[in-house]
Design a protein around this nucleic acid. Structure first.
Lengths: 208, 208
DNA sequence: TGTACATCAGTGAACGCGCGTTCACTGATGTAC
DNA sequence: TGTACATCAGTGAACGCGCGTTCACTGATGTAC
């Protein structure tokens, strides 16, 4: 069995063990960084022996990938809630509420143990970059779907590009919150929101 | 001798060896990533035995740090040239030329072997994050100095925050060029430039 | 210009260590009758 | 409700490997007279 992902566990005990391994991996990522974290270390901290970890994850990167996906799913849940609230109001309504999207995304990030380091790991490892990329594309897709009904005559490709860039910059702002302590968090969020807001409103100006 | 940085080499042969080690480290970072690169690997690819590397760098992270600094110095050179050209014209002139700054920065990045992976490594390793942070702060500082004479009455802290965010987003766009092939590079640069331009022009509106 | 000497650049060989991963196994949980 | 059996969850012990780094050394380069 060389598959990276194992089939999901059957018993409750096992599901808890799997979650515990992910929590512990997040903590350790924050404590020692991606180059020092090891499967033996994760297992030990979770109170398990090394082979137990391999029951749940095919290899080391499968652990980190699952951790990344769990974080991004939680961020996506925040996005979905936000879309349900503001997408019906049209592009202008969404543009005006982009600040709360950033804030809610930041809250989802903050809630995950070792979130910054998960994001960094996803950014840094050739085996993991695709996770982040796929997630950002997925978010873009959802935003495009939300905008397109309100923008007659706009070319989908151009809209996709614009929103894709906005998504990237939004996530960059989120990471900046954890990195740069010389700028207050609310200033980062407010400034970024106002830039993205202007870019979104600009879309409506060109729509038919 | 446990210092991370060794004193600079005395002979030409040595200076070339040092540069070669950095070039090779950049290549390998791109090929195998930060978790697999090793000092033995770098030395071998450079045609040296492992102890030779330790003549130039105190430890593994000193190599990566030097590599990061070299890249950021080249980016800063692009910034300096741009500032010399456009800073005298005032904030509006700079705002109008922000696109060429992004393009020149991107060119400096592209010219370095393994540049994307260097940036990612700087982002991902606890021992290296400060290099990136310091460089972004330095860039911010230079921009603040360039803007402040043209903006009477503005509070330096607020200006610093705004520009710091702009710098972060600018670098995020630069990284995106190497990551997202579904958006054309010129679109990324143009869209980002227009967002940053608007943010900069907004500064002049509030100045006395 | 020649040579003795000091300094610098790079080598050969090895070290202890922890890594990722696997094997054959035991104990815990669920299920059918 | 009891029990026999199947499946699932986790263990004990170890593997080969390459890592980062160091030691004592040799060969190359520069310098003073």
């Amino acid at each position: 069995m060389t598959l990276a992902a194992r089939r999901p566990p059957q018993q409750d005990r096992a599901r808890q063990t799997r979650e515990r391994l992910l929590d512990v991996a997040g903590e350790l990522l924050a404590e020692v960084g991606i180059e020092r974290i090891s499967t033996n270390m994760i297992a030990a901290r979770a109170g398990l022996t090394p082979p137990a970890l391999y029951r749940y994850f095919g290899d080391k990167y499968a652990v980190l990938e699952a951790l990344g996906r769990r974080l991004m799913e939680r961020q996506n849940a925040a996005l979905d809630a936000w879309l349900a609230r503001h997408a019906p109001g049209g592009v202008a309504a969404m543009a005006d509420r982009i600040g709360s999207l950033l804030a809610e995304n930041a809250a989802a990030t903050r809630a995950e143990p070792g979130a910054v380091w998960i994001l960094r790991a996803l950014h840094a490892s050739p085996q993991l970059v695709h996770v982040r990329l796929e997630s950002h594309r997925h978010v873009t897709e959802r935003l495009v779907d939300a905008c397109v009904p309100h923008l007659g005559g706009i070319e989908r490709g151009a809209l996709w590009s614009r929103l894709r860039i906005a998504v990237e910059l939004g996530f960059a702002a989120d990471e900046m919150l954890h990195e740069e302590d010389r700028v207050p968090a609310d200033v980062v969020l407010a400034e970024t929101a106002s830039m993205l807001r202007a870019a979104l409103l600009d879309l409506t100006a060109h729509a038919s």
